[in-house]
Each structure stands twice: as structure tokens, then as C-alpha cells.
Amino acid sequence: MGIIRSRLFVLVPAIGLAIVFLAETAVAAGRSEPWQMWFQPAASPVMERIIEFHNFIFIIEVLIVVLVLVLMGYIIIRFNAKSNPVPSKTTHNTILEVAWTAVPLLLVIIIAVPSLKLLYYADRIEEGEMTLKVIGNQWYWSYEYPDHGAFAFDSIIIEDENLEPGQPRLLSVDNSVVLPAETNIRLLFTSADVIHNWAVPSLGLKLDAVPGRVNESWVRINSEGDYYGMCSELCGVNHGFMPVHIKAVSKADFAAWVEQAKQEFAGENSNAGVRVAKADTRVR
């Protein structure tokens, strides 16, 4: 804390910019960096495409803002009462009006095409190699592995005072969800109580867990590592305290972990999805 506060005295924008470049080159971050201004590095094909699409529309956005600012700046200098004491009476210019209707329309179409491609690409896959079921609870996530003997477990935040060195605050959980890298994974979401949202920024994942419904998405994690996220739909008192921690491992390690997990979580699988929310009111 003290260290963080003392950084205050350093030039804020300079640091910010430096970090952007750092963040772009950072290896296997899986979570945000200090002063980060951009996306977390992509760790899935969906996120790669999101960033690619964004790079494209971002140029258009910047051009529009710059155009308007430059026009405004020019107008303010050129047409202020001192430099232009007699106002013109022009109130129409058909060509101009058609142009500024048609050009935005064209831009919109240019944006819509790749946008819809991305939408359908991110939506779902025909065949997953395995399925993970994600269940939202107030205020923790449960995971079920239906293709691996349907064992299940809860994943609960680690309180600040119990953190071990290296575990990021508010992102670490007792049982992280282990998944194989380089595997097409089908994801199913539901909730045992209110609406939650399972989100992992570096993987481009975000979908509501809605009680009484099953939502579907998919992910392919490019490489092994730790990927973090947080609940992204207001779900009550401890909404800020139900993180997601994915540990992506090799296929072999995943198989080994499955065997061990089957033993460890043997007692839990019967009721994971249907358990009613525990009234776990954290008081700090």
C-alpha cells in the first residue's frame, strides 16, 4: 500500500504510457497490469479476434473524434466575433447534407460486416472436446466436469488475510478451475440463485449465468497459465468477491488432475447445481 501511494508523485501520464508498452509485450499476464490502458493480452482465438476487430474500429473512432476537434478548433479561431464580425446567412447546402448522411452510413456498413462475423464466431462451436459446467451461487462459483465422471466442486475467494505470497488479492480462490490448454471446451452456464456473469477478460469470455436457463459458449485456451476474472453481473452484497481463476495445464497434466480431483471431490458431486445459496455474509 505504502509503495503504491508513493508512486503518486511520479508523473502519471508518463507511467501510464510506459505501462501500455509493457503490457503489450507482457508474457502470459492473465490479469491486468498497474496503469494498464489497453486490453489484457489475448489468450484465446476469440480474444485475438476481438482485439483485431477493435484495432479496426478504433482507427475509425479516433479519426471521427480528431475530425470534429480539428473542425471545432478551426471554427473557433476563424469565425470568432473578432475575426469574423459579420455572420453569413448560409443555412443549407444539399451536397454537404447528403454527404454527412451517406458517409456515416457507409462507415456503419463497413463496421457491421466484421462485427457480425465476430459475433457468430464467438457464439459457439459445433463439437467440443469436453464440457465444463459453470454454476453461479451467491457468492462463489461451482464447477462440474460432466465428461469426466461429473465430479464437482466450489471455488471460493481467499480472504485477504489468508493470501499466500504470489496470490493476487480478490482474484484468488481456494479451488481454481483446471482446464486443458489447446482444447476446444464447451461451456455451459446456469445459476442456483440470482443472475451472475462468468467473465475472463484475457480469454474474451463473458456470459450470464441465469437461474432456470442454460447458456452456452466455448473457449480454447492458447497456452498454459493462470487466467483471472470476476463476476460481471450485480448479484448482491458480495458481488465483488466471487472471482474466477482458471489454471490452464497441458492435456497430460489435466488427465492427472482429473484423477486426483475425482477422489478429492467425491463427496461433493451430488448437489453442486441445486444447492440453495448459503447465506455467506462476509463482514469485514
Binding site: 474500429i57 463496421i111 462485427s115 474474451g204
Partner: peptide, 15 residues
């Protein structure tokens, strides 16, 4: 205009 794209919302929704 950027947020209008459902694909971008995977990154931005509720942030």
C-alpha cells in the same frame, strides 16, 4: 458505436 457490436461486449459489458 464500438459498444454496439455484440462481439466487443464480450470485453466490455459490465466493465
Amino acid at each position: 458505436v464500438a459498444l454496439a457490436n455484440s462481439g466487443m461486449d464480450l470485453a466490455w459489458h459490465d466493465t
